[in-house]
């Protein structure tokens, strides 16, 4: 379990700050109170003691990110495929997703609140909207980069438009699509800390409850960074797994 490992590391770090000769319990207590009292850069002992408070928000955060990116992915892919076939849709859809992308996130949450209420739904709607632009544009770029001769051959052998899309164009666009997904996911992990304002919880919850306490900020922020790295690695692994043809040596 990641959380347990992090906790153990924090405990180890706390032990190091202890003066030699003092009993362990005293040392621990002493270090904690003084560090917290003067709001030190990072109070490892406090972090270890209070780590459990972050586990729930961490997983809620991961859930919000996953659902938002998944919803955004399905929508963006659908829009991209639609505008791949009907090119005239590209400028309006690029503009529309671009506008969504520029709405300040907190404003977005408050605009949605009267409609969708306080909670996870509101956060997911706003966060999905933010992923659209990146995934949409990357998918379109991926589809545009499919070698024209592969498309010509596919069509010339009797593939219908749909067969060509699913068997040739989308598989060949996977690298660009996943690249978009990765950027979208990482940025969603960051923006999702604001989901707290929509009442959705997540790491923003502990973060904004005590934004002046440095240890809290570093711990919540650090967990978000770890999550972003984890998601990114996961997607990269996924891309490698589904595109074995990208790794062959060229002759």
């Amino acid at each position: 379990m990641i959380s347990l490992a992090v906790k153990a590391a924090l405990l180890a770090a706390a032990g190091k700050g202890c003066a030699p000769g003092l009993p362990a319990g005293f040392c621990h207590h002493h270090a904690e109170t003084s560090c917290v009292a003067r709001n030190g850069f990072f109070c490892a002992a406090w972090a270890a003691d209070n780590f459990d408070r972050y586990v729930g928000p961490f997983f809620k955060h991961a859930l919000i990110v996953s659902v938002s990116v998944a919803v955004g992915f399905v929508l963006a892919l659908a829009l991209a495929v639609l505008s791949h076939r009907h090119r005239w849709l590209v400028p309006p859809l690029t503009g529309f997703t671009g506008v969504l992308y520029t709405v300040p996130s907190i404003a977005f949450f408050f605009l949605l609140l009267p409609i969708t209420g306080f909670g996870t739904d509101t956060a997911v709607i706003a966060l999905s909207a933010y992923t659209l632009q990146i995934i949409y544009r990357n998918t379109l770029a991926g589809l545009a980069n499919v070698p024209p001769e592969a498309k010509d051959a596919g069509r010339g052998m009797g593939m219908t438009d749909r067969q060509l899309l699913w068997r040739v164009e989308l598989p060949l666009a996977v690298p660009e699509i996943v690249a978009g997904l990765r950027i979208a996911t990482v940025s969603t992990v960051a923006i999702a800390t604001l989901a707290f304002f929509a009442g959705a919880g997540g790491l923003g919850d502990p973060l904004y409850k005590d934004i002046t306490f440095k240890t809290n900020v570093i711990l919540a922020g650090g967990l978000a960074i770890l999550m972003a790295i984890g998601f990114d690695a996961l997607l990269l692994g996924l891309q490698r797994a589904v595109t074995p043809w990208r790794r062959v040596r060229a002759t």
Partner: peptide, 22 residues
């Protein structure tokens, strides 16, 4: 129908048009 017709006619092009992912 174009798709049906094309499946009955072999098609070879210069840049081979092989599917790189297959």
């Amino acid at each position: 129908s174009p798709a049906e017709l094309r499946r009955e006619i072999g098609y070879v092009i210069q840049q081979t048009g092989l599917f790189p992912h297959r």
